[in-house]
Amino acid sequence: MSTNALPFKAYSYRNDLKASDFDDTRPTIVFDGECALCSAFIQFVIRHDKREEFQFTTGQSSLGQALFQHYGLDTVNFETNLLISRGKAYAKMSAFSQTTSLLPYPAKFLSLAKYIPSPLDTWLYDLIAQNRYRLFGRADSCLLPDSKLKKRLIE
């Protein structure tokens, strides 16, 4: 089961001047704003997050860049979404299963992905991530926020 956060101290980004300037009382998803699959996942979260708990930023934003850099993740290829929740960082399948676990049913059922054994979950996630542009497309620009996203988007 792969539900572990990245091996970093909780709230470690608060000590990083580049990454500390955001409201971390809400779950925050950092995603590739140019990836059609990533943007579709964010739209999925928005549709199911009836209490509007999640907030979002793109990996291309200054905060997204700072968080990816802080956690030693690629700041160009964005081969994972990053979830920051209660000070812990989650990546790859852990980010997916943790995010969906915070949504109401029926979307919460997708959190069962946490039971995919490691390293199979990592292999599967990486396979999709490495081929996401070819399989799902790439936007010419970042996701244009509608009114629902705009008030929850950290730029």
Rank of each mutant, 00 (worst) to 15 (best):
L63F: 03
G64E: 05
Q65L: 13
A66G: 09
A66I: 06
L67K: 03
L67H: 08
F68E: 01
F68M: 14
F68H: 14
Q69A: 15
Y71I: 09
Y71H: 07
G72A: 12
G72K: 12
G72D: 14
L73S: 05
L73D: 06
L73R: 12
D74R: 10
D74E: 02
D74V: 09
V76Q: 15
V76F: 04
N77E: 13
F78R: 11
E79A: 02
E79W: 00
E79F: 04
T80Q: 02
N81L: 11
N81W: 00
N81T: 13
L82I: 09
L82V: 12
L82A: 05
L83T: 07
L83W: 03
I84R: 01
I84T: 05
I84Y: 03
S85C: 09
S85N: 13
R86F: 04
R86Q: 15
G87M: 06
K88S: 13
K88N: 13
A89M: 11
A89F: 03
Y90W: 08
Y90L: 09
Y90V: 07
A91F: 03
K92R: 15
M93G: 02
M93R: 00
M93S: 15
S94Y: 00
S94L: 02
S94M: 04
A95E: 02
A95Q: 02
A95N: 03
F96G: 01
F96D: 01
F96K: 00
S97C: 14
S97I: 03
S97Q: 06
Q98M: 12
Q98V: 12
Q98P: 01
T100Q: 02
S101N: 14
L103R: 06
L103H: 06
L103V: 10
L103E: 07
P104F: 10
P104C: 06
P104Y: 08
Y105P: 01
Y105G: 00
Y105N: 10
P106N: 13
P106G: 13
P106T: 12
